[in-house]
Design a protein around this nucleic acid. Structure first.
Lengths: 176, 176
DNA sequence: ATGTCTATGTTATATTATTACATGTCAAGG
DNA sequence: CCTTGACATGTAATAATATAACATAGACAT
């Protein structure tokens, strides 16, 4: 099951769709791919993807959902890393700063980015029932925000867009 | 300075602009106006704008910025209300549920809505320097999110849009 | 007045996040 | 080599945010 590293590849289920979080696919494949790209990015930027940081990214990729800092911490501890909160928070901060992980404000949780290095301005779609989170392209929405901000003379640095709702699977299974 | 109640009035500085949070204006005026409309809304909807709830709204309106739950609580306590967290959280929850207050996720803080009762889908512009928060019209951005969600088969219930950046005043005073 | 529903008060605790400081790692320049 | 300085990690303590659980009080319809 260990997929080999590859470039972003539209024929790969983990890469093809705008986002696959709501569909079944080969996680191991995505994960390996993203980790490989993370290594490259870190090298390019002269930052260090140390063992803790890499492991945190792996943990997030394994689950393919948003995890709280303490969930991450618990797993880290099992693997013999420090088990105090700053260990997790620092690694997460590094990953967020370097665009490898997104913070989901509404959940106080963290989600591995599936498109590291590619410029993207995602919106997050959060299923209120199963807690899955998808990263959706949101260029149109960003433009809207930029317009509104400009009208008020506000200079935008970072934008967070999060939608709470129902994912396709949970819509289908409402009566289940 | 006690302004009389009035309907939404484009000639009033507190009502005219898309949002006045970044401009000087007569807070007492806005506040009185919004409180009046809150009373009407509560009556219409058969919910009770009790003394604690009304006082919380007043507190948020007085400051015209986003306040944390514990800041609100402290003021409530001074006024003789209970001083345990649930007092503040419950009132805030009520106000949010009824569209009188917005929660700013990025700040874990609460902001009085300046347009209660009017259908609106705001984005929040948060100044990273002075912490002022403006409510900006964001219909275009919402449409963008709806489009992205639709493409993934996601059914949107609520959307949060928050931009972090620099308000006009802080842009001007950067070197100050 | 009595029962019921909602709201409030209060205690305790859960969850999320940071500060502060000690220790360790590692690479660059002497 | 070795030492120095920057960055990373480990650890203890605590801060900040939020909720659970249960008791009391008010509103109001019958």
């Amino acid at each position: 099951m260990a997929a080999e590293l590859h470039q972003h590849d539209p024929s790969c289920p983990g890469c093809a769709a705008p986002d696959m979080a709501f569909a079944r696919h080969d996680h191991a494949h995505c994960a390996t791919d993203v980790l490989g790209r993370a290594d490259v990015l870190a090298a390019e930027r002269g930052v260090r993807l140390t063992p803790v940081r890499r492991r945190v990214l792996e943990i997030l990729l394994e689950r393919h959902r948003a995890l709280g800092a303490y969930e991450v911490l618990e797993r880290l501890a099992r693997d013999g890393f420090g088990n105090q909160p700053p260990v997790a928070y620092r690694a997460l901060e590094f990953l967020v700063d370097n665009g490898l992980v997104h913070r989901i404000q509404r959940l106080n949780a963290y989600l591995a980015c599936m498109h590291p290095g590619e410029a993207h301005a995602p919106a997050f779609l959060i299923c209120g029932t199963c807690n899955a989170v998808a990263e959706a392209p949101a260029d149109a929405a960003r433009k809207g925000v930029d317009g509104a901000a400009k009208a008020l003379g506000f200079k935008v640095e970072r934008v967070t867009i999060e939608a709470l709702g129902l994912c396709p699977a949970c819509q289908a299974g409402v009566a289940a």
